[in-house]
């Protein structure tokens, strides 16, 4: 076997493992990123969709945020305009979290219809620029 062939084997091994790692990485740790409507659709089409790690991007419904500082529990509803999901989150929300902000909720939808969040990210397109005053 020439050095070139041996090297090619090594190269194939490296490229193959990168590909394998990426594919299995996504399979094991990738999460669906859905809007509330898409989530509702999935759940009605496939009832086993509950209790699956996912991310939901939506807007917080103004006036639904209730904070219980003592137990660090945060409850709020999210919506994309059509479908509404209640969210419960134990932990510290980010500084930018407010009523009516866009959020990405990471967690699982349970049978009770509530998204049990493990992480809440406040998303704001103009995060580093001042919010224009209405």
């Amino acid at each position: 076997m020439t050095a070139g062939t041996k090297f090619a084997l090594g190269a194939v091994l490296i490229v193959g493992s990168v590909g394998y790692l990426m594919a299995s990485g996504i399979k094991q740790t990738g999460q669906y990123f859905l809007t509330p409507s898409e989530l509702a659709q999935r759940v009605s089409a496939d009832p086993s969709f509950y209790d699956l790690g996912l991310k939901v991007g939506a807007r917080v419904v103004p006036g639904t945020v209730s904070k219980e500082t003592a137990t660090q529990t945060l409850r709020f509803n999210i919506t994309d305009g059509t479908v509404n999901y209640p969210v419960i989150f134990k932990g510290l929300p980010p500084d930018t979290f407010t009523d009516s902000v866009e959020v990405v909720v990471e967690g699982r939808l349970q049978k009770d219809g509530v998204i049990h969040a493990t992480n809440v990210l406040a998303k704001c397109g103009s995060r580093y620029e001042a919010v224009p005053k209405a």
């Binding site: 990485g25 996504i26 740790t29 999460q31 669906y32």
Partner: peptide, 11 residues
Amino acid sequence: VTYGPPTFNFV
């Protein structure tokens, strides 16, 4: 489908 920090670390 998101490719989050766990996936990046895995790879």
